[in-house]
Design a protein around this nucleic acid. Sequence first.
DNA 1: CTAGGGTTAG
Length: 595
Amino acid sequence: MKMITAFTYSYCNNNRIKGMPCLQSSLVFFASSLHSQASIIRNTQTKTMRDPPKFSNLEDALILFNSMLRMRPPPSIVRFNQILGQIVKLKHYSAAVNLYTQMGPSGIVPSYCTLNIVINCFCHLNQMGLGLSLLGNFFKCGYEPDVTTFNTLMKGFLLENRDAEAAEVFSKMMEQGCMPNEITFGTLIKSCCMKGNNRAAIQLLRKMEQSGHCKPDVVVYSTIIDSLCKDTLVANALNLFSEMISKDIAPDVITYTSLIHGVCKLGQWKEATRLLREMVGKNIFPDVFTFSILVDTLCKEGKVVEAESVVEMMTQRGIEPNAVTYNSLMDGYCLRGEMDKAEKVFDLIIRKGSGIDAQSYNILINGYCKHKRINKAKRLFHEMSDKGLVPNTITYNSLMDGFCKVGRIQDAQKLFSKMQACGQLPDIQTYAVLLDGLCKNQQLSTAIELFREMECRKLNLNMVIYNILIEGLCIAGKVESAIDLFCRLSSKGLQSNVRTHNIMINGLCKGGLISEAEKLLREMQDKGCSPDDWTYNTIIRGFFNSSETLRAVELVHEMVERGFSADASTMELVIDLLSKEKVDPALLALIDKPL
DNA sequence: CTAGGGTTAG
């Protein structure tokens, strides 16, 4: 499905614009909604006349706050809270705490809002002990903790997975006759969703309906809708969406953005355009989040040109792409190996002042690694450190994989030591990268040593790890050991998957055990583990290579019947055999025509 | 002036 074509096409039909290229008309369509958006902006501007000055950087906020501390008589506590609030919005939590500690000595008495702001800072700094200790300040000042105080403390504990303590806060709140509100439920529901427990989240939603104190609102519905979409349960999400509408709870841009993200992930571009049209029809306009998702989806499908036109489109609507938008675009270019263009986007991020972060570097480093330009990647790795950015586990994993893929396994091992020395904890994927590198570079004994280390570290060994190891055994010609390990999987509580079978079938073919390979093909079907195009291509090549042409041709028929087709490697083999007149030329027509 | 929801990397 050509996403952008479908996207623009539906708008063309909708607007009945003739004699204009499709993309242009979709721009016109969006531009036509600019008027209503402009009036919204004007309204907020009138309102902001009395609002505090907005800061784009910490520096300015600190200067103003410090000057306010010295004013006599001092400004209202509300002014101080406003600045603290802004600093929190910029995520400078420690700075906010710091300013708070200067208030007392300057003779400024905090309000209960001040204390709530500071508790929130401690929550974000993972310092719940200090957060709790601020309750003492409430009593000292003669205030009562309010529902905001309790909600904030609960959120802090939930974020650290300290559910028991969060429950204690909840009980304490009830004890004090403080009723939970929408935000209390919203916090709890979000926590359920983050743990992947959608059922519990929906149960809480129902409880909210029964409680009588508060009603579910757009936020709690959107939270669950988003969680369902992330689990690709889009149908369920759409059901909840209908439910909220039937209850007269109006969806907003966030609700729609979650749904659009969900359908985009499933490649349902038509559904995405339907939702886009529907929201605009309700005067809900896509924002930078919505557009970034469209850009990202197009990029992941390799349609960078179309992604660029979406960026153009949003810019024309006055919605500035941010670092996230550009990171997606950069990744899109990396995916296609267009590294020069990726670098251009990288420079654009710097020029726009959005700020390059570790993630931007990781995308570029990964891009170079995937295209075997490891030295370029290494240079970027040093560059990011020079800029004071800390490489994380993802950075190291990408680089290690890059080294492995060009056969520089020693450099990968050096990085493995370095990351640990730098305090970056290797995760399961780090081990998978290194293990795979060792296996593919004929260093089975070192790979097995690493595997033992993983067992000692009590890492949760999954099928990804075992697949690598089984493949390693096959590569090293130890097919018997591979079979042995394959058979012991269930005793480890693991279930072999299609990839495992493909690896085994390939190993058996390479080891000349072609009939064993075919037995395994039939076995996997019986187990309900459907063979894929990889399986067929592997075994067909096995039969051709064993000069069992007849059986190979039979399997080609079976493969085609199942809707799979020959891959490049099988094609090459058949063409090679054709040139030696070993196969029937009629076969070419069969494998050359995917369904 | 304080508390709950949506975007990017291995």
